[in-house]
Structure formats: structure tokens, C-alpha cells
């Protein structure tokens, strides 16, 4: 190594690069995980400890915030299930519509496919908050208020552009000969979906499903306006209610505890599907 000057130098450089990369990663982790860690810390602190963080207290740690959140009326778990229900229904609805749509889009000629993709990108870029007044009118007219299933309809509609774009890329990435061979073997369109297409694009389906689910899990303005019955609230709205429950003080502790509880299902979901998410996102990215 001493003899090979160039090698030693480049070794140094790559070492420095690695250090820089490590520093960047740590900074990024602090940046993104810091607030979460703060929330976690807050959720376990007594109110006293929160306002005087450096004083030595007899009782610094507590589970009282969790108790108050879980024992509220209706219990906080209820909102969790409401969100889960709305999320699952909107995800299923989105996929049911997006999969056939993207299959056809991947079979279209180049020009018309480009046209429809541009339209979809336009829809995806549209700030959906601008729609919510109109949606509210529709909901009122069709009497869809206070129904979680009805809430899944705008969610599925709003997720449609992104889902179709992701899945179209997945379909066009498949070698066409696989489907041709299945056609020669005598498989109908539905049989081809069952045996050939769906298994092969399952990573893309999983990543799309997660993105759709995340959207509906986090969605606030539509849920706020469509649902007033406190039994039917979704998580973001319920949490906002906790935050605004008192005029005189902000209930930091219960709010933090609610955030932590609300994040757990997502963390589990992402951990389970981590691999397909990454591969699904990158296959889409490469084809562009």
C-alpha cells in the first residue's frame, strides 16, 4: 500500500467520502426522526416535566396520557379502526379501478398513451384541497355524509392518477412474450390476470397500495367536512379534536400519545412491505 501512492490517495479519498456519506445519513436521520423521537418523549412525560424539562422531579415518566387517550369516549382505538376501514376500502377500490385501467393504458399506442399520461399527471398535480368544497356539495346532495364507505370514494378518486401511472409502468415493463405465450396456451384475459399479470406486477401493486393507504390515513380536509358524527371520525380529525379540546391549554401529552398510537399501524405496514415498496418505486423510476 505504501508503494502504490495513487491507490493510497484514492483510498483516503474514498474513506473521506464514506465519512461524509455517513455524516449525511446521520444528519438526515436526525432531521426526519427527530420530531418523531420528540413526540415519543413527550407522550411519556408528565405535564410537569414538559414545562420544566431540566428540573429534577420525583415523577418524570408516566403513562397517564396513554390512559386518557385510550379511555376517552369514544375510545381512541375506535378512530384507529375507522381510519383502517376507510383506508382499506379506498385502497381496494383504487386498485380495482387502477389495475384494469393501467393494463389498457399499457396496451395503447405510444401517442394516445402519452396523451392520457399527461392528463393523469395534470390531475395528480392539481391541489385537491381546492376540490373539497365541491365535494362537500356532492356529498350533501347524495347524502354521503357521516359514512366511512362514502369517504373512500373521493379517496380512491384522488389516488387514481398516481396509482394508474405507477401500475402502467409496471405493466409496460413486463416482457410482452409472457402474455403472448399465455394467449397461445388458451388463457382468457381474466385467466392471464390471475396466472401471469398479477403475480408478476405484485411488487408494484403492493407499493401502490401502501401509497394509497398512506394518503387516506393522513387525509384531513375531506374527512373533516364529510364526517361530523364523533363515532365515525378518522384519525387525523380525531387528533385535531384532542389538540383543540381545551381553550386554555394545549394538551401536549395526550396529543403526542395519540400520534404515537396512530403511527404504529403505519410503521408495521411499511416494515412488512418494505421490499416491494422499494422495488416497485424503482422499477417505475427507471422506466420513467
Amino acid at each position: 500500500m505504501a508503494r502504490d501512492h495513487g491507490g493510497a490517495k484514492s483510498g483516503c479519498r474514498s474513506l473521506r467520502k464514506m465519512k461524509a456519506a455517513r455524516f449525511m445519513i446521520i444528519a438526515l436521520l436526525i432531521w426526519s426522526l427527530g420530531p418523531l423521537a420528540w413526540q415519543l418523549y413527550t407522550s411519556f412525560c408528565t405535564d410537569q416535566a414538559l414545562v420544566t424539562p431540566f428540573a429534577s422531579l420525583d415523577q418524570r415518566w408516566t403513562l397517564v396520557h396513554y390512559q386518557s387517550v385510550l379511555n376517552s369516549n369514544p375510545p381512541f382505538i375506535r378512530y384507529l379502526f375507522n381510519s383502517l376501514f376507510a383506508g382499506v376500502v379506498s385502497t381496494v377500490l383504487t386498485l380495482l379501478l387502477a389495475i384494469p385501467a393501467s393494463y389498457s393504458l399499457s396496451k395503447l399506442g405510444k401517442r394516445s398513451a402519452l396523451f392520457f399520461k399527461c392528463l393523469l399527471i395534470g390531475c395528480a398535480l392539481f391541489p385537491y384541497v381546492l376540490l373539497f368544497l365541491a365535494l362537500l356539495e356532492i356529498a350533501r346532495y347524495l347524502q354521503l355524509g357521516n359514512s366511512l364507505i362514502a369517504l373512500a370514494i373521493p379517496y380512491a378518486a384522488l389516488s387514481q392518477p398516481l396509482a394508474v401511472l405507477l401500475l402502467t409502468n409496471a405493466f409496460s415493463d413486463l416482457p410482452p412474450e409472457l402474455e403472448d405465450a399465455a394467449r397461445v396456451e388458451g388463457l382468457s384475459v381474466l385467466q392471464r390476470f390471475r396466472w401471469v399479470l398479477l403475480p408478476l406486477i405484485s411488487p408494484a401493486i403492493a407499493s401502490t397500495a401502501i401509497l394509497v393507504f398512506l394518503f387516506s390515513w393522513n387525509e384531513y380536509p375531506i374527512a373533516l367536512t364529510w364526517i361530523s358524527d364523533s363515532d365515525q371520525l378518522t384519525l387525523p380529525v380525531a387528533m385535531a379534536r384532542i389538540a383543540g379540546s381545551s381553550i386554555h391549554s394545549v394538551p401536549y401529552g395526550p396529543y403526542a400519545a395519540a400520534t404515537v398510537i396512530g403511527s404504529i399501524p403505519l410503521i408495521i405496514l411499511v416494515m412488512v412491505f418494505q421490499k416491494p415498496i422499494v422495488s416497485g418505486l424503482t422499477t417505475g423510476a427507471i422506466k420513467g
Binding site: P175, E177, L178, D180, A181, R183, V184, E185, G186, L187, S188, W195, V196, P199, L200
Partner: peptide, 18 residues
């Protein structure tokens, strides 16, 4: 294709990977 009786071998073999 299903109603015709042809046996086809593709250049890429077109076997299902899963």
C-alpha cells in the same frame, strides 16, 4: 389463439418466473 391449435416456442422462452 386459444381456438387455434398451435404450439409456439418463443425466442425468450416466455416461461413464467414465479
Amino acid at each position: 389463439p386459444a381456438e387455434r391449435s398451435v404450439g409456439m416456442v418463443f425466442q425468450s422462452y416466455a416461461l413464467l418466473p414465479h
